[in-house]
């Protein structure tokens, strides 16, 4: 298999990466947030910071976040002698907040991108629910790694597959954007090696990629399996929720439940399931709300092995 580029990465590094995708911001953030109100003076905020050893404090009103005051703001206030002013006149209003449901990998990317030391976290209702610092992330990862080390020492590693197996199974994690697509690439490599017709390979690759992305974008995580018999190839996506309330609507082109940041990455245009249906020879979907969804896409291998798109 050509797809072996990750082999020199240590197991611990791979595990850390996996944990970054599995954990949500809400799993890791500090929940008891010290806040100040817009009518407090900068002096009050300075004392809060000193007392709680914080380098930044969100400013809220009725649990809605209005701005943030950092140590830099306080230093400036002392320099220019306005420390007794009210907070609202000087707080930074241009803020970037994280959402509770975002994977930790997104949070890490935000730290790199914006260079801030902390991000306020907002609930789906838009209320301040916590704060996330680099320290929170490190602490969570250390906990995860040591728990995994304990688990490994008491059990055998799972998922050992032979390169020529006709059955493969891939775990797909929610919002794991940077690994999503790997399963499909591996499936494509198997098919290329099996010398199927390029058109057929492409149809299968499209189907499996869409199903894989669906698992990452819309499910709470699941499993993508690939099986090949001499006559057909099945790609099956299973997940454990949240289920699709209206299956026929979900299969309608243009219908999407994706949020804005999924859309900003070029997904969530409502083309996924229609694409899978279009490229596959047989398509089946079963879904129960809260329990999960199983989607099967079957591709027949013609006797003369000539796929066409």
């Amino acid at each position: 298999m050509p797809n072996e580029s990750g082999k020199n990465i240590s197991t611990a590094a791979l595990f850390t990466q996996e944990a970054l995708f599995r954990l949500r911001v809400s799993d890791v953030m500090t929940r008891n947030v010290v806040t100040a109100s817009p009518s407090d003076t900068l002096r009050v905020v300075q004392n809060f910071m000193k007392k709680n050893r914080l380098s930044g404090i969100p400013i809220t009103l009725d649990n809605r976040i209005l701005g943030i005051i950092s140590v830099d703001d306080i230093i400036r206030a002392l320099d220019f002698n306005y420390i007794e002013d009210r907070v609202e006149a000087h707080m930074s209003r241009n803020m970037v907040a994280l959402e509770e449901t975002m994977p930790l990998s997104f949070a890490v990317a935000y730290f790199e991108k914006f260079g801030f030391g902390r991000f306020p976290v907002i609930s789906p209702e838009g209320l301040l629910s916590g704060i996330l610092t680099g320290g929170d992330i490190l602490r969570a990862l250390l906990q995860e790694v040591s728990a995994e080390a304990e688990r490994l020492s008491s059990s055998q590693p799972h998922s050992i597959v032979s390169p020529r197996a006709l059955y493969r199974s891939f775990e797909v994690y929610k919002y794991d954007f940077s690994n999503a697509g790997k399963a499909s690439q591996e499936i494509k490599a198997i098919l290329t090696e099996a010398q199927l017709a390029p058109g057929l390979i492409r149809r299968i690759a499209v189907g499996s990629y869409e199903l894989e992305m669906n698992l990452a974008l819309h499910s709470d995580g699941g499993n993508l399996s690939f099986s090949m018999s001499p006559s057909a190839i099945d790609i099956i996506a299973r997940d454990n929720g949240p289920g699709i309330p209206d299956v026929s609507l979900a299969c309608t082109e243009g219908f999407s439940t994706a949020n804005d940041w999924i859309k900003s990455m070029g997904f969530g245009a409502g083309m996924g399931l229609p694409n899978v249906k279009r490229v596959s020879d047989e398509f089946d979907i079963a879904s129960i709300v809260k329990l999960g969804t199983i989607i099967t896409a079957r591709f027949f291998i013609p006797p003369e092995n000539k796929g066409s798109l």
Partner: peptide, 25 residues
């Protein structure tokens, strides 16, 4: 990307603003 995967021809140059890893996939 869903449109591209459905419709981009083989051996085409893909013109986009989507600067992330999934575009490579």
């Amino acid at each position: 990307l869903s449109d591209a995967i459905a419709n981009a021809p083989v051996n085409s140059v893909f013109i986009t603003v989507q600067a992330h890893k999934n575009t490579v996939a």
